[in-house]
Design a binder for these strands. Structure first.
Lengths: 96, 96
DNA sequence: ACCCTGTTTTGACGCCTGTCAAGCTAGACG
DNA sequence: CGTCTAGCTTGACAGGCGTCAAAACAGGGT
């Protein structure tokens, strides 16, 4: 992996490097799409804080959001997941 | 994924969420083990800074280090990689 | 015992992050 | 148009992070 690719991919890992965002990601990935109104009550955090975390996930390219009427829906961007998964398939060292 | 698991795993993603650490990890994972003396010159950073990043990777459980004589050698902890990879195999949403 | 090289620790600095309160915007419904 | 709800943005604050210089530590060689 060269420096350029590292700079491109690191933000995705960084976005997942917070327990709240990891749970948000897991919840969103477990269904085709998820309403913010169902995400927020799962945490002991203010609405703005959840909104902030969702923005981080969005800007990392991990999720997409869409407003439909009153509610906003989030879904995962599967190509981002594939990119991360491919990176973790690094050649396993001997003795693994 | 429950909150407890998220708290346990997030530090691994967080450790990979820096371009320097991602490259370090990639370099270490590409061979059975890697000497710090070969890692440091690959970056335009001071020795202490590289040492700091290696410590973060170590404390996240991603690598192990061992001093042999003059030099210190790093190698990946494959079980950590497997744990991360398993998490990224989340059920893909329809329309992927 | 002493120094020389390789690595880590400590201390300090500025920037980034997670959080909340308060204010703002978008859409639905009278 | 007014107002209600859902969600986002802004501003502020404490704590964390990346970096380096300086100092400390570990081994090997002389």
């Amino acid at each position: 992996m060269d420096a350029e690719q590292a700079v491109a991919v690191a933000p995705m890992f960084k976005a997942l490097g917070d327990p709240v965002r990891l749970r948000l990601m897991s919840m969103i990935a477990s269904v085709p799409e998820m309403c913010v109104c169902d995400l927020t009550p799962a945490f002991d955090l203010s609405g703005p804080t959840i909104s902030h975390h969702l923005k981080v996930l969005r800007e990392a390219g991990l999720v997409d959001s869409e407003r439909r009427g009153t509610w906003v829906w989030y879904r995962v961007r599967p190509e981002a997941f594939r990119q991360l998964g491919a990176l973790l398939d690094l050649p396993a060292p001997e003795g693994a």
